[in-house]
């Protein structure tokens, strides 16, 4: 039995997962997304990731970035190492890829800002 708080939405359901003969039974979830999250959390916890990277533009010295999908939770610190040396030299739009297939996850690091709006 494992207790957890659902992080899918702000409701924060208190859920419980019981594994019987390899079958997970989720209780306490208010929706199907909670159930999916709970089962993943037992098998392989996944998280979204957001941070910032440097740019060469003094008007906007840092821009926000994210992974365009969830990544394994244990990769978060490795990803922050991977993006540490990046310096953005071009003006990016929201969703433009900065690193493709980060750490072989098939997830990309993308910009979350349209830099053209700020110049």
């Amino acid at each position: 039995m494992k207790k957890m708080i659902c992080i899918v939405c702000p409701k924060g359901c208190e859920m419980q997962v019981d594994v019987n003969d390899g079958i997970s039974v989720v209780t306490g979830n208010a929706c199907i997304r909670g159930k999916e999250f709970a089962i993943n959390e037992i098998l392989h916890p996944m998280r979204t990731f957001q941070s910032t990277v440097k740019t060469i533009f003094p008007e906007l010295p840092m821009i926000p970035i994210k992974t365009d999908d969830v990544v394994p939770k244990e990769y978060l610190f490795q990803i922050i190492e991977e993006i540490a040396g990046i310096e953005i030299k071009d003006k990016l739009k929201c969703g433009d890829i900065i690193i493709q297939n980060i750490l072989g996850t098939s997830v990309n690091i993308v910009s979350t800002v349209d830099m053209y709006l700020y110049f």
Binding site: C9, P10, T48, Q50, S51, T52, P64, I65, K66, C94, T112, V113, D114, L117
Partner: peptide
């Protein structure tokens, strides 16, 4: 607010703060 979780009610999406504002 570069983290995500914005707009779940309104857009049914997990947006970051800058994305929501944009």
């Amino acid at each position: 607010c570069i983290h995500d979780g914005f707009g779940l009610h309104r857009f049914k999406k997990r947006l970051t703060g800058p994305e929501y504002a944009e």
